[in-house]
Write a protein that binds this DNA or RNA. Structure first.
Lengths: 207, 207
DNA sequence: TAGATTGTTAATCGATTAACAATC
DNA sequence: TAGATTGTTAATCGATTAACAATC
């Protein structure tokens, strides 16, 4: 495992492999080939083999990949083998939806703190979480070893929140606000803005 | 404007340009160069010029781009110059969040119908929308000229919903469920799955 | 005119796919 | 052994960036 630079395109495919492999695991399927994976995921088998080969030799020639073994490997690559704590800022509808989402039950990612800038929401309950004021963000992140921040505030507030996350020592941010977040490049920012997503969809409408 | 194939990468950048140009418009800024756009958006100016040039000659040499003119052009390219109706299936937290979102107030995209498979939610009110049973999907989509479908149901139900959307004549789908949707390729599917997004973020954590 | 900036071609860079020797 | 499938190299394809003539 040398220090080859892994492209973002490769990294983004790993969760997709993981997801499908987990499905195979649930179906008690023990082994899978890149050909059959490729067929199910609508991807080129060579690409799948190459993606995996960046991280090691996980397959067996003439046989394919052991499903459970590969799941374990990908989880390790994605660092999902450890518990990762997440904080969310913005207790609006979207924020609440994410908190409620059971996704974090698997995959060792868990939203453990919610913040909001507006007084009205402080103290509100979202499942087992209580909405905290922004003033507590820094300390909570430090205390609870929170490493990822999710931003679900309106666009105009998002850059400030991002800054606060960064100052508090968060390592990565998932931004749902439709705005460009500018942070030092040590901090990874992914965008999940569905306005953009919807608008680019419109391009493909027929007329 | 020949029949050059426009790459998806280009199309996905157009909404980003549009967003920033709208900001400039609000600030009463009349003209912008690819250089300053590039600086603000952290993109290569040549790329911006090239992207725009696929669709026409929108700039003026020595001057730059007229903000309002360019906004209009991009809106036309993205087909946002017409009212586009959207239906949503899955009245859970995420679905409600999207319905509440005011994004559709601008940009002529509007969620005009919500459906859910579970009896319990039928008849519930989300703003000015009433949750309808799946049995009404087909007819409502036809009657109201709905062209885009949003899927916010659990992964196991998503493929069925996608099929129903397709059969009802929807032209494009935005899928929030963490599952691969397979449809005839005339129907454009974009994925907005934040589980995947979060997992690939984890890769970039420090250790 | 001089300075600025586009539109576009050519050069570069990176990602995907094909092909195949190695080997289970 | 014969068939299957990997890991990897080489070929292809596509996207980004640099460079610059055209021109406002």
């Amino acid at each position: 495992m040398k220090k080859v630079k892994i492209s973002d395109a490769v990294v983004r495919r790993l969760p997709i492999y993981l997801r499908f492999l987990t499905e195979l695991h649930n179906q008690k399927i023990k082994t899978v080939s890149s050909a059959s994976l490729g067929q199910k995921l609508d991807m080129n088998p060579a690409q799948i083999r190459k993606d995996l080969a960046y991280f090691g030799e996980f397959g067996q020639k003439g046989v394919g990949y052991d499903v459970d073994f590969l799941i374990d490997k990908i989880r390790n690559i994605l660092k999902l083998n450890q518990q990762i704590y997440v904080a969310l800022v913005g207790a609006g509808n979207l924020g609440r939806a994410l908190c409620n989402y059971n996704m974090y039950l698997k995959d060792n990612m868990k939203i453990v703190a919610v913040f909001d800038a507006g007084d009205s929401k402080i103290g509100e309950r979202i499942n087992d979480l209580i909405v905290q004021p922004m003033a507590e963000l820094r300390q909570t992140i430090a205390e609870r070893a929170i490493r990822i921040g999710i931003i679900t505030v309106p666009a105009d507030e998002a850059p400030t929140v991002a800054k606060q996350f960064a100052d508090a020592g968060v390592e990565a941010i998932l931004n749902f606000a439709p705005v460009k977040i500018r942070l030092p490049k040590e901090i990874r920012v992914h965008n999940a803005d569905f306005t953009t997503e919807l608008q680019s969809l419109a391009f493909y409408l027929d007329e």
